[in-house]
Design a protein around this nucleic acid. Sequence first.
RNA 1: GUGGUUGUAGCUCAGUUGGUUAGAGCGCCGGAUUGUGGUUCCGGAGGUCGUGGGUUCGACCCCCAUCAUCCACCCCA
Length: 446
Amino acid sequence: MKPSVPKGTRDFSAEEVGKRHFIFDTLRKVFVKYGYRPIETPTMEKLETLTGKYGEEGDQLLFKVLNNGDFLNKADKEALASLDSKKLTPSISKRGLRYDLTVPFARYVVQHQNDISFPFKRYQIQPVWRADRPQKGRYQEFYQCDVDVVGSTSLMYEAELVQIYDEAFANLGLEVEIKISNRKILTGIAEAAGIPDKMVEMTVAIDKLDKIGMDGVKTEMERKGIPTASIEKIENILENNTLDALKYALASSEAGLKGIEELETVFNYLSKGNAKNDIKFDITLARGLSYYTGFICEVASKQVKMGSLGGGGRYDDLTGMFGLKGVSGVGVSFGAARVYDVMNELNAFPSASEADLKVLLIAFDQATHDFAFEQLTQLRQAAINADLYPEPAKMKKQMKYANSRKVPYVVLIGSQEMESGQLSLKNMETGEQDSKTLKEIIDILK
RNA sequence: GUGGUUGUAGCUCAGUUGGUUAGAGCGCCGGAUUGUGGUUCCGGAGGUCGUGGGUUCGACCCCCAUCAUCCACCCCA
C-alpha cells in the first residue's frame, strides 16, 4: 500500500507551518491588544450540538464518529434492516467533528454563562472538518480563525472589529479593502421593491453581482420569481448606492432606515481612528444565507485577484439555539488559507524565520566530532539555532547536507581548528571563510 | 450530492493500431575530488504501470467497478 493521507487533507512541511505560524502570531498580537482572549473547544462535539445548525446541507457535511464498543448491538435494528443510513446514524454515532467555530462557541457561552462576564470577547484558532468534496482551495480539514464578542449590542464593536481587520492586514503587509454594509439595508431594499417575502432570493442574487454582473443578477432574480417591476426598482437602488441616496429610496422602510443609521454610527466610530486600508460601504455585500442580522463585512485583497480574505457580521440570538435568549454577538473570521496564498503570491513572508537553523558544525574524525559537540552545546546555550552532523562523514556529504538545509553558516572543525581554537567559519552564500574563536562566532551569529 | 479530468520511478511527465526486455529530465547514491556545498563529467540504484475484475494467444493501452486527484456546479472558507 502506498502511504497517503485521506481525501481532502494534507501534510504541511516545516516551511509551510512556519509561514502559517507567522500569520497566526501576527493576528494573535492584534487580538490580544484589543482585549480578546483565546479559547479552545474539543475536536469532537456531541452530534446533537452540531446537527440542525447548518441546514440540511450542513448536516450531510458533518463528519460523524462511530461509537466505540459493540455499537451494532445497540443500533436501531429497524433502520439497519431497511438499510436507512440517515435513520441509523443517531443510534451508532453520538459524536461529530467540529464543523465551524461559531456553533461550539455558542455552546461554550451558554454552558459557561455563569463563569464568564459579558461582553465576552474571545478569539479561536483551530481546525474544522467538512465532508465536502475537495476542490481548489477547499479541503475537508482547514483552519478557521474567529474573533467574536457576545453580550453587547453596542456598535462600537462593529467598528472595533473593522479596526482589527485593518491593523491585522497592515501588520501582515497586505493592502486590502474592507467592505461593510448592513443586512437591514437589504431588508429595506426588498421592502421598497415590494417583495419582502423574496428577500433571501434577492440577497443570494445580489451577492453574485461581481461574479455574474448586473444582467446575471437580473436573470437570476427573474428565475426566482421576482416581478420585473421590482427588479427594475432594485437595479435602480443598487446603482445609486450612496448612503444619502438610500435614505430617500428606503424612506418607506423602517428596517432600511435603521440599517443606514447603524452604518452611519459605525462610520462615525471609525472616523475617530486612522485606518491604513480603505473602508467602504458596499451595498452588494450579502454574505450568503447565514444568520447575520445587522452589520456585515468582508475583506478583499487589493493586490491579488482572489475571493474574500475574511468576513463576518452581527448575529442576534446566537445562543438562542442552546436556550440562552437575547444574547447578541458580532464577529469576524480570517480565511487563513487564502491569506496564506495571497502572501505567498506576493512574497510577503519574511525571508528568514527565527525558527531557521543558523549554523551547522562539521567535523572530520571522531576526536573532532566529540570536540565539535562541546562547541555545539555552547552555541545552543547562547541561544543560537545550531546543529552538528551526527557522524564524521566525508566533507562533501556534510556540505551537501548543509546546503540542502539552507544553513547560512557552516563551522569546519578539523584537528588544526581543535588544537588552535581558531574555528573555520564559512559563509555559505558568499563562500567566504575566516578563522574565528567560538566566542567571535557567537557574536557574529547572534 | 451532480458533471468532467487525470492516475506510469521520490518528483514532473513520455510511452505508436494491443505485441516480446516500460523510457526521459530532475532528485537520490557512488566515483572523478581522503579538508570544502550550490557548476561539470562518469557510473549506479529505483516500477506489482492506483487497486480489483473482465475481454484477448497477448493489456500501461480496450471494457466494468473501485479508490485517489484536479476542475466546474451546488454550497461554502
